[in-house]
Design a protein around this nucleic acid. Structure first.
Lengths: 154, 154
DNA sequence: CAGTTGTTTCAGGCAATACTGAAAACATGC
DNA sequence: GCATGTTTTCAGTATTGCCTGAAACAACTG
């Protein structure tokens, strides 16, 4: 189903938002379209057609979405074409994965132990304290999140 | 004070980390150096010299840091040269400012009300629920953070 | 097994951005 | 105010990364 004007406007809004944070335009447009397209499952060819992107771009950016865990592929028996759709709980999964980045920040801070400045060492240690705090707080926060929104992740 | 090998290695580690998320190399190097340089206050000329960057690059990227609230300038009376240093509580401030981005995500979800798909509308509504949840949880979390790490923000 | 359709890969063009170097603008102390 | 050193601005250059289009590859159908 091709896009109507309102849908096009929304895809553009989503794309503008995410490109602001450094995402590729095509990546963001695909995300926006997969949020509102009907049906939720789409083939690469449909996406390319609807968004006016080349097949290669769709293949590449869609793979990026799959690897990030936002999108999953659906096999339909007796049909050769792969379908792609936004994963249920995709947004929650992104938040849950933040814990990894928090840990990476903690590692970064600890790596600074050998070069701790005499003058205002908190420039480095504050980062470590921050990472520790979030590493502790994040898991219970995620539990509350899934409990409260209880749509079940995957 | 010029960098020794260990310091150079750390600046490089910090720079590698942040460029991975799309930051400019110079921006990230300046951040890393301001975390460990001695003394904490540095002039633009010193930073350019120590990192091997041009004066123009330092001016531009340093301004970006100031606008983001990570770096502040210090006036020293009787000295014409401006000094720059990492703000106390800079890392906490970054986390506190996340609330704005959460709200922006909520707006993005609500903007999708007009194009809500019949098939699996939760693709859009989940994002709104998520944003609402974090908008509620974030302020008390920030309070706990500042209380627990109590170095005082600014 | 050949034909058809869908997907991936990759070289090349293109646009966006970072960085440099130099000149203009600015601020401060004398 | 003038001189001096600092900071900003900006045109030009280099680099990066996105996107395309075509060709190779894979999978199903008749």
């Amino acid at each position: 189903m091709p896009m109507d004007d309102a849908q096009h406007a929304y895809v553009d809004r989503v794309a503008t938002f995410f490109t602001m944070f450094g995402s590729a335009r095509a990546w963001a447009e695909i995300l926006g379209w997969l949020m509102i397209c009907e049906p939720a499952e789409q083939t690469q060819a449909q996406i390319a057609e609807d968004l006016g992107l080349s097949a290669g771009t769709v293949s590449t950016q869609l793979r990026a979405h799959v690897q990030l865990g936002m999108v999953e592929q659906v096999r339909v028996r007796g049909d050769r074409t792969q379908r792609y759709r936004l994963r249920s709980g995709a947004w929650y999964a992104v938040m849950a994965s933040e814990l990894e980045r928090i840990r990476a920040l903690g590692d970064l801070a600890r790596a600074g132990d050998g070069v701790l400045p005499r003058d205002r060492p908190e420039r480095v240690t504050e980062l470590g304290d921050l990472a520790d705090f979030f590493a502790r707080e994040w898991p219970p926060l995620m539990e509350r999140m899934t409990a409260e929104l209880e749509k079940g992740p995957a």
